[in-house]
């Protein structure tokens, strides 16, 4: 038990089993990014997956939209302690995008327009746990929230759900991305409170 602040009462939310340790629920959708939001018209947008053999799989906006689309209902957890429960997204499962990808790599680096990167182990992207999402709450994803499309890996802290996603590079090693090089945890599981390095 920590230091008791006797005048502090707080607002009990931690009884909610959907909240990971140290998180509180918010109804708003805060924006946290490191720099200006890039502007990417969908006719210039591309999503790629590149492998260790130099193979490059790429989708234009139209070929991406022609893939099977899924509705996703999930909770999201930001490392700055807010969680937003019961959010609704639409997008393409990474399982679909990785269908024809052959690799022996166990790690990935997600690359965003604007230069942001974040590393995610490949198993965290597969098995129905990650998507490239382009719709939030029934509306096209706003630019401030990563539109036209962002990575959605809701079982990890939300900085792993890279905004303005451009592609995924398969890597042999677990190389730290942007926030992972700036003090944040290499993996980022909210249920284990993997916040900081």
């Amino acid at each position: 038990m920590g230091i008791i602040s006797s005048g502090f009462h707080g607002r009990r939310q931690t009884g909610n089993p959907a909240l990971p340790p140290g998180q509180y629920e918010t109804a708003s959708f805060p924006v946290l990014t490191a720099g200006p939001a890039p502007r990417i018209p969908t006719d210039e947008w591309e999503f790629f997956i590149s492998t260790e053999s130099g193979q490059r799989h790429a989708w234009s906006w139209d070929t991406f939209m022609a893939l099977p689309q899924m509705d996703i209902h999930t909770d999201i957890h930001c490392v700055t302690s807010w969680s937003k429960l019961g959010t609704t997204w639409r997008g393409v499962s990474l399982d679909t995008l990785f269908e024809d990808v052959e690799t022996n790599c166990r790690f990935t680096m997600a690359h965003s327009y604007g230069g942001y990167t974040t590393n995610v182990p490949l198993p965290d992207l597969l098995g129905g746990r990650a998507w490239v999402a382009w719709e939030f709450d029934g509306e096209p994803l706003e630019r401030a929230h990563g539109g036209p499309a962002r990575l959605l890996v809701p079982h990890l802290y939300f900085w792993k759900s890279a905004k303005w996603i451009n592609g995924i590079e398969l890597t042999q090693d677990d190389v730290p991305g942007f926030w992972e090089s700036n003090g944040y945890h290499i993996h980022g599981d909210p249920w284990r409170e993997e916040r900081y390095s």
């Binding site: 008791i4 707080g10 931690t14 140290g22 509180y24 302690s81």
Partner: peptide, 14 residues
């Protein structure tokens, strides 16, 4: 910052 109430409830903010 982590505050703890007298019943052990905690809240954290940056």
């Amino acid at each position: 910052i982590r505050l703890t109430a007298d019943d052990g409830y905690t809240a954290v903010r940056s």
